[in-house]
Structure formats: C-alpha cells, structure tokens
C-alpha cells in the first residue's frame, strides 16, 4: 500500500517538478539581478512558495514599492488558493488535524489540480510526497538559477514551459472524456478568463477568482453533480420504467 502511495505520488509529482524548475531558475536569476542575497532568494521560495506572486514582488520591489503594498498585492494574487483549499478540505476530512498545517502550506495550483482529479484515496503519504516533489523543484530551481544562472540550454527551458499546461490537460482528460458538463465548464471558464484578461479591469490574480466563482456557481446551478452510484441507480430506474 505504502509503495502505491509513493508510486502514484511520483507519477503526479515528477511532471510538477519538471514544470516548476524553469520558472524557479528564472526567479533565481531575476532575484540575483535585483541585488537580493542567496539566502533571501532561498527564503522567498522556501517560505512563501508561491510562483507568480514572487515575480510580482520582485518587480514591485524594483519600482520602489514598500513592503505593505507588496504584501497586499500578494494577498490578492494568492487568494485563489482559498477556493482551492475549500475544495480540498471536503476531500481529506478524515485526515488528522495536525497534518492540515503542512498540507495547507503546499496548496499550489498544480498540486491542487492533481489532488482534485486523483481517482485514489488521498492518504497523507500520497499528498506529502506529491507536495514535496513540487516544493523541491521550486526551491532547488531557485538556488540553481541564482548560483548557476541560465545553465540549461535555452531551447530546453522554452520547451519545459509547456509542461505545466500539458500536465493540467492530462489531469483533465479522463473527466472530459466522460462528462459533457466538464467540457462545457472548462471551455466557459477559459473564455471568461480570456475576456477578463482582455478587459484588464481587475487586480492581478482576481480574473481567475471571478472565473472560479462564476463558473462553479453556474455549474452547481444548471446541472447538479450527482455521485456516480446515484446516477447509475437512476439510469437503471429509467431503463426499467
């Protein structure tokens, strides 16, 4: 059983690792060019552990913005994880309270995505190893970028940029194959996000929050999701009736 936890976690964790390394290297390089020390760069990735907001923080720092403004921006940018944790909390209810402090720390977009579509039981070994793969990619990439600079060939770095997207697609496909509703919601969410980005009215990070709220609300309203067993039971009744 433990072996399966490890195997399944690495299957999801390795692609996240691959996807995190290139942006983490870029962060390390950027941090160095902003006169941030190696220790501080490490702490950014190791303690904050939130991709986009770390880049935004460096940019704002360079414009001369004070900590207060940057921290507020970070809150806005990362608030989407509130919704993701809300979902995850319904999935790992039976897990002991003391583990949620660690699990909550590792709730990133990609970890959330893998966890939410995982068909297996979310044991603590599975969740922790998955999160550790993501974390180690992000932290080690940051240090490598800071110390070594752009050591990977440019074409390889560029191609690795596709990994996080193909990961999300691979996670989603089994659901899309079986549920027309999922297809509709994914496309609707993508279109709404595109429109919101074009309009450019909301602060960083809030386009996706609006997408999640609107699309999940629409999804819950129009077609109520049913547990599989219930669905099959109903279909059975229909066939007999």
């Amino acid at each position: 059983m433990v072996n399966n936890d490890v195997k399944d976690a690495l299957k999801g964790g390795f692609p996240i690792f691959i996807g995190y390394v290139p942006p983490a290297i870029a962060f390390g390089i950027l941090a160095k060019s902003c006169d941030i020390t190696l220790l501080e760069s490490f702490l950014f990735s190791a303690v904050v552990f939130a991709g986009a907001s770390q880049f935004i923080a460096l940019n704002l720092l360079m414009t001369g913005m004070g900590p207060g403004g940057i921290i507020l921006t970070t809150l806005l940018v990362n608030f989407r994880h509130f919704l993701m944790s809300a979902y995850l909390s319904t999935q790992i209810r039976e897990m002991a309270k003391r583990y949620i402090f660690l699990i909550a720390f590792g709730v990133t977009d990609e970890v959330f995505s893998v966890l939410s579509f995982s068909k297996r039981k979310l044991t603590k070994a599975f969740v922790f190893i998955l999160q550790l793969s993501a974390y180690s990619g992000w932290v080690s990439g940051t240090i490598a970028g800071y110390v070594l600079g752009g050591f990977l060939p440019e074409i390889l770095t560029k191609s690795m940029g596709i990994a996080l997207y193909s990961l999300l697609l691979a996670i989603l496909l089994p659901e899309l194959k079986t549920s027309a509703k999922a297809v509709c919601l994914v496309i609707a969410s993508g279109i709404l996000n595109t429109i919101l980005i074009k309009l450019d009215l909301l602060p960083d990070g809030w386009n996706i929050i609006v997408c999640i709220l609107v699309i999940a609300f629409a999804g819950s309203f129009f077609i109520s999701p049913e547990p599989k067993a219930l669905k099959q039971k109903k279909q059975g009744e229909k066939m007999h009736g």
Partner: peptide, 10 residues
Amino acid sequence: KCIPVAAIGA
C-alpha cells in the same frame, strides 16, 4: 465540486 474544473479551465 465544480471548483476544480472551473479553476483548471482558467
């Protein structure tokens, strides 16, 4: 329940 699909779409 609809959050994952909505989030990943965006």
